[in-house]
Simulated assay, not measured.
Amino acid sequence: MFGPKKIDYRIPRQSSRLWRSLLTAFANEFVTNPGSNNIREVMYKIGHRFATQSPLPTCNSLDEFKTAMNSVWQDLDWGWVDLEETPASLRIIHHQSTNAYLINDVFGEQTKIWGPAILEGAYQKWLSAMGAGESLKVTQSDETDEFGTTEYQLKA
């Protein structure tokens, strides 16, 4: 007989760590926002919800913050982030979030529009939690390249 114990054993071994976490955030957001027409907005909210589900420890410097975020991304096999302070903004460069050509092939060309919004929402939530406030916003500043690198900026 195929009982629950056997299913419980297989589930974590046959689904990617990334997708388990991300799909939970997807499901929760779609339940609370079933009528949304703007997929980019929904994906942003999913990223925000994901970051809420994955809170970072208190960080006292940008290096600690980067390390904390990279710990989350490493655990999910979802690339890594670099941070760079400029006089006008904080640059957030996320590397290897996807194999952009592979993802586009699976989900279609529209992925370029909504895919990066997931990270944008996550970074907004984490930065707000670290004290960035509501007046500073994370926005995508460059298209995702073929290696899955996307740049964002935190600025007023």
Rank of each mutant, 00 (worst) to 15 (best):
P4V: 07
I118N: 07
G131Q: 05
L56S: 04
M43C: 07
L56G: 02
L154P: 01
N70C: 05
M43H: 11
S71G: 15
S97N: 05
W78A: 13
H48A: 12
I46G: 02
I46V: 10
L119E: 06
K45C: 06
Q153C: 10
T144G: 06
D142R: 14
S128Q: 14
Q14C: 09
I93M: 08
W126M: 04
A122G: 08
L154D: 05
S15F: 12
T111M: 12
V138F: 01
G121T: 05
S141Q: 03
T32I: 11
T86F: 02
E64P: 02
I46E: 00
W126F: 05
K45L: 08
T149N: 03
V72I: 15
Y44G: 00
I93H: 00
A68R: 00
T52F: 10
L76M: 14
L23P: 00
L119C: 10
N38I: 07
V31I: 09
T32F: 09
R20E: 14
D75F: 07
S135E: 12
N28H: 06
S54Q: 15
E29D: 11
T111R: 02
E146Q: 11
K155A: 15
V31E: 02
L127M: 15
E109P: 05
V138N: 01
E143K: 11
P34A: 08
L62S: 09
Q153R: 15
L90A: 10
V31S: 03
W126C: 09
T111Q: 08
S15I: 14
T111F: 15
W73G: 06
D63V: 04
W80I: 04
E29W: 06
G131R: 07
S89H: 09
T149F: 01
T111K: 00
L83F: 15
G121I: 08
T98Y: 12
N37W: 08
A100W: 07
D77E: 12
I11M: 03
V81T: 08
I7K: 14
E84P: 00
N99V: 11
V138Q: 01
E64H: 01
G148C: 06
G115W: 12
T58D: 09
F50W: 12
V31F: 04
D63C: 02
W80R: 15
I103E: 10
Q153I: 14
T67E: 04
D105K: 14
Q96K: 14
S15V: 13
W19Q: 02
V81Q: 02
T111L: 03
S15L: 12
S61L: 08
I92A: 04
Q140N: 06
G121C: 07
G35R: 10
F2Y: 02
Q74H: 13
Y101K: 09
E64M: 05
A25W: 01
W19A: 09
A25V: 07
V106S: 10
S141F: 01
S71R: 06
T98R: 04
E64Y: 03
L62R: 12
I118V: 11
H48N: 15
E29N: 06
E64I: 05
L83Y: 12
S21G: 03
E120I: 00
K112N: 09
F26C: 08
T144S: 09
F2Q: 01
E143W: 08
E29H: 01
Q140W: 02
M1R: 10
